[in-house]
Design a protein around this nucleic acid. Structure first.
Lengths: 216, 216
DNA sequence: AACAGATAAGGAGGCGGTCTCCGTTTCGTC
DNA sequence: GACGAAACGGAGACCGCCTCCTTATCTGTT
């Protein structure tokens, strides 16, 4: 999004030298290998190991992707586009705003679960803002807000809930799924817990004051 | 809980030799230092650094606490007792089962937030079961189940929710709080989202089938 | 009080991970 | 082809976890 090294060939803008083909090739190959590697071992696997498997030196890997987050961001970019496409599809096809929000959250959940351990760096990106992942996240928060606003307008969602809360919840749910308490029913349970949380605007929320703890 | 090295002095059971006083002293001192250290830097700080700050060699630290989890577990033990006391207090004083569950969840949340980054190893302990933290967690899940059952009996809680889901949610919420999206309102928002999830048993949950995604 | 045996402390060092620096190679251009 | 810029490779610095073996310390006994 930010720069154009994702364009197919490294075409120089003006009279500048063209990007070297070996660089492009290496980049692509590293990404392929990393994708496979992260899919196998989760995102905490050794970067040097990825370099080795890709048949390049560590230096090469780190020149292309200065750290794990950068690599992750590049890897996620393709999926970003998928998700964006999904967003457009939902907005075009799904007229019921409640169903639209639900489907968007499902899509988001799937994106967030692309690799094992992904929620952690995403959360970190959210706070630090310096990560290459941060921008993407922010965009999806905004999208979530759009869907949410529509659902709220139609009375399908609790008006006090915010888009970022929903995004964070999705992240947290995906994170928790990593545990699942050795029990496959928990993931669904959490999702529906969260859904019940945002979905019903009908009931008056219980006043907070009536059961504050007397102990500190 | 499992062994008795928590007894005040290292009194031997039978004709066995007494525990050396320097060992006891070191253990205590390491714990003090670790508590301070984790409070400052979160639980991911270097263990060697703790040993250094405590003025002992790394070997000494690792003999007392074979890994980070063991150290954490020892550190948490005092707080376990606090939480247990709180449980008893709630069960004794709070008659309304809904308020009791809420207060218990608050206490749990506080315990889980004792140190920065704590939710992560707790979640891991939950799945792997081999961790010294696992037993404690399991106990708290059970307690949560007790409170929840009571609330469900009185019609205050959704009967489909399970104790472990609530525990996991608490964990996940605490985890998310680490991010908070640079925004102090999110933590509360998540907690209330979750609460709305378990609290209302009145509404019939929307059938899942009506809005499944058409896309894969 | 001194001794002997058990017990614990200390810390060097192995391992594996991240990341950097610089000599060498490869590529695009003239 | 030859030249210069660009990219590569990998040795190695640094750090964190953890182990192993030597040395120091403590405890119960004579």
């Amino acid at each position: 999004m930010a720069d154009e090294r994702c364009t197919d060939m490294g075409e120089a803008a003006a009279g500048e030298r063209r990007q070297r083909t070996d660089k492009q090739r290496n980049r692509t190959h590293i990404l392929e290998v990393a994708e496979e590697f992260f899919a196998e071992q989760g995102i905490t696997g050794s970067l040097d190991a990825i370099a080795k498997r890709a048949g390049v030196g560590p230096g090469t890997l780190y020149r292309h992707f200065p750290n794990r987050e950068a690599l992750l961001a590049a890897l996620l970019q393709a999926r970003d586009e998928e998700l964006e496409a999904r967003r457009i599809a939902i907005q075009r096809e799904v007229t019921d705003s409640r169903a639209a929000l639900t489907q968007w959250l499902q899509a988001l959940d799937k994106w967030v679960t692309a690799f094992d351990g992904l929620p952690e760096p995403l959360r970190a990106a959210l706070t630090e803002g310096t990560s290459p992942l941060a921008l993407t996240c922010q965009g999806f928060v905004t999208t979530t807000e759009d869907f949410l606003r529509a659902a709220q307008r139609d009375g399908h969602a609790n008006p006090r809930v915010r888009g970022r809360d929903l995004f964070l919840s999705t992240l947290a749910t995906a994170w928790a799924r990593g545990a699942a308490l050795a029990d496959e029913s928990s993931p669904d349970a959490l999702v529906s817990l969260m859904r019940t949380g945002w979905e019903t605007p009908a009931r008056q929320p219980t006043p907070d004051s009536d059961e504050g703890p007397s102990a500190p």
